[in-house]
Design a protein around this nucleic acid. Structure first.
Lengths: 222, 222
DNA sequence: ATCATTTGTTAGACATAGCTAACTTTTTTA
DNA sequence: TAAAAAAGTTAGCTATGTCTAACAAATGAT
């Protein structure tokens, strides 16, 4: 009934992340293709398949959406991904930047007992090492609207909630400059020219690019 | 350099288990195909590929053998399989008969850090839940010649060392009658007609078929 | 030694999932 | 609003790994 290929799973998860987690109002074929680094033709081909299986809805030349069943599959994948990341970091000495690639493989392992036991073994963690909320066994979880560091005005004071886990070099960079989950960050200055920002945290001052700040998610303090 | 598909890995591991662990003097294409439940044509096709990659050697219409590199890959897979089985049983409440299927998936995860850290996390276990020796990180392990329960004469007294982990129904049967690793078994009688045997263990007497006894590996006591 | 059976091989088909190149539709913008 | 750009689609190719059917070689039995 529910036997998807690795590729089908990848597409559903990607679509969910664009549509729901990033709260994009509209996601199109080519955007999805770019996100997955495949050609538009490949994405189009797969979307056809997923529409036939009723995980995806869209009209010809129209935008993409997920059915409830499609969302449910995606959430289960996200749950698996984040639980594995947590396991790798907390029990197997993996660092922030090492977990993603391996979790991408592990999330496709098919065994609900495995993932629920892993959850129990770790005593039902609520967030993964990057600060993201882990959906529970019923697929419930709160999607916090994401505030990027780059979206805040000068003088804001905020706390690091989570980081985008997609890029190894980005994550290495984050740890190298000394930022970590819950770090308190003050925005000293936003430079008009390139939107780079000067930030202060742990008594340190650093300048980071807009691209960097786009991948850092925060909550305001006070 | 060393990037094999899941299928290629399955074939190499299967060939190793037939050739080395089962110590079959000769393994042919069709035997391998049957072991993997694929058609002879499929096996032949894959063997061609593995010969081109120099993991397998054989002459046309001749028997199959593994190169050192082929063996080394197979041992790494067996290591991964057995470490995962151990983890599932010892930490995630899996039973004997539940681990194999999931471990078959997990053994294909590509990350040497993952498996070496898992090994460390469990404090370098020497045997998996079925009693099989786990190869170490260097790929070294002792292959014990397997003595099947079915090969022993009447009146033998032996100890259960390991069981074949390939069949769920078999493993359930083993636990249901109360046999476990290290159980002491006495062979009371071997029935000529169908080679079924009456055995005694833990004050219990059971009759088991030859097929059952073929999958139970033991060592003699005194 | 020959014939039958078993074993191994080849050819050709199918499904998945990727690609490029060409084309169509929609959207943007001048 | 018409032309240009962007987005989406289709056709046709590739590679992996499966299959069946037909054929060839090796083995075993009489």
């Amino acid at each position: 009934m529910n036997n998807l290929t690795k590729s089908e799973e990848d597409y559903l998860k990607a679509l969910f992340q664009l549509l729901i987690e990033d709260q994009a109002s509209k996601v199109g074929n080519n955007q999805l293709a770019e996100y997955l680094t495949v050609s538009p033709a490949s994405a189009n081909n797969m979307i056809k398949k997923l529409k036939a299986k009723e995980y995806v809805i869209s009209e010809k030349y129209g935008k993409l959406d997920l059915t409830d069943e499609g969302k449910s599959i995606a959430v289960r994948l996200i749950r698996k991904h984040r639980l594995w990341e947590t396991f790798l970091c907390n029990y197997l000495n993996f660092t922030w930047d090492e977990v993603h690639e391996v979790a991408e493989q592990l999330e496709h392992i098919k065994s609900s007992k495995l993932i629920n036991e892993l959850d129990r073994f770790m005593d039902y963690p609520e967030r993964d090492p990057h600060g993201e909320v882990i959906p529970n066994a019923k697929g419930e979880y709160s999607i916090q609207p994401k505030i990027t560091l780059s979206s805040l005005p000068e003088k804001s004071v905020c706390q690091l909630v989570s980081v985008n886990d997609g890029s190894v070099t980005f994550l290495k960079y984050v740890s190298e400059i000394g930022l970590a989950l819950s770090s308190e960050i003050e925005i000293l200055e936003v430079r008009e020219f390139d939107k780079s920002i000067r930030i202060q945290f742990n008594e340190k001052i650093e300048t980071v690019s807009k691209k960097f700040a786009d991948n850092v998610f925060v909550k305001l303090i006070n």
